[in-house]
Every structure is written in C-alpha cells, then in structure tokens.
C-alpha cells in the first residue's frame, strides 16, 4: 500500500463510528419469556409478544401449545395449561428427543423463516436488557 497510514485512518474512523453507536438507547419495557426453566440462563430472556402471536397463529393455540400421542401430533388439542419444560427437559432423553432450548429455537425461528418475517438472529430475540 502506498499510503499505509490510510489503514490507520480507516481504523480510527471505524472506532469513532463504534463509539458513537455505543450511545445506548433506554431499554424499553419488552414482553419477555421467563427463562427460569434453564438452570443458569446465559442469555437475556427472549422477547415474545404472546397476544400478537395468537393472532399470527390464526387463533390456533396448538401451533405452540401442542399435544403429541405416540409421536404423532394430535390436531385440535392444546396444552396451554402446561409449560414447555413440563415435556421438554433440558437434556435430550429417550422420551424427549427435543431438549428445551432446541424446542424453543425450532418452534420460534422456523416459523419466522417460513413466514419470511420475525426475528431469526440470536440478539433479535435475546435483546439486551
């Protein structure tokens, strides 16, 4: 490079941009899922506007609060009286092929991918508090 200082200049500009961006915005009050079921949560609880999602799931509670029998999804039956963690334990087990963390990620993220809308990157759900 003929002007190596250009590199340093670029770095300086980049750093300046980052510091400006650091001016943090006041944390709005967001409706979050409680991560109590995880032994020692490492991420802020996921943002989840529950009632908006009832509408997004066409009023079908069983899209999320599902019931399975012998590995088969039972249509028209729902389990909103249970926590996800009542059936999905933390570690994979023979009676639970879908550990809790993966269950949440699969349910939430896959629908957002399928619908082409909604958060799909870690920090879009686990928004810093």
């Amino acid at each position: 490079m003929t002007h190596p200082f250009r590199f340093i200049l670029c770095l300086a500009v980049l750093l300046a941009a980052v510091t400006t961006g650091m001016v943090s915005y006041a944390g709005q009050d967001l409706e979050r899922l409680d991560s109590w079921a995880f032994e020692s949560p490492r991420r802020p609880g996921a943002v989840f506007p529950h009632d908006d999602h009832i509408f997004l799931a066409d009023d079908d509670c069983s899209v999320c609060h599902h019931v399975y029998e012998n590995g088969e999804l039972v249509p028209d039956e729902s389990s909103e009286d249970l926590y996800c963690s009542d059936c999905h334990s933390l570690k994979p087990a023979p009676d639970n092929p879908m550990p809790l963390e993966a269950a949440y990620h699969k349910l939430c993220r896959d629908c957002h991918f399928d619908q082409g809308e909604g958060p799909v990157l870690c920090g879009e759900c686990h928004v810093k508090e």
């Binding site: 980052v18 961006g21 650091m22 990157l121 870690c122 920090g123 879009e124 928004v127 810093k128």
Partner: peptide, 18 residues
Amino acid sequence: FLTGFLAYHQWIAYRWIT
C-alpha cells in the same frame, strides 16, 4: 471478530452487523 464483538453487545445495527 470485530462484528462478533459488536453483535454480542448489540450496540448498533444488530441485524446488519450479524
């Protein structure tokens, strides 16, 4: 590494940085 650091802290333009 730089974008990973910024993404973890969620300071700016999270989606683009990630």
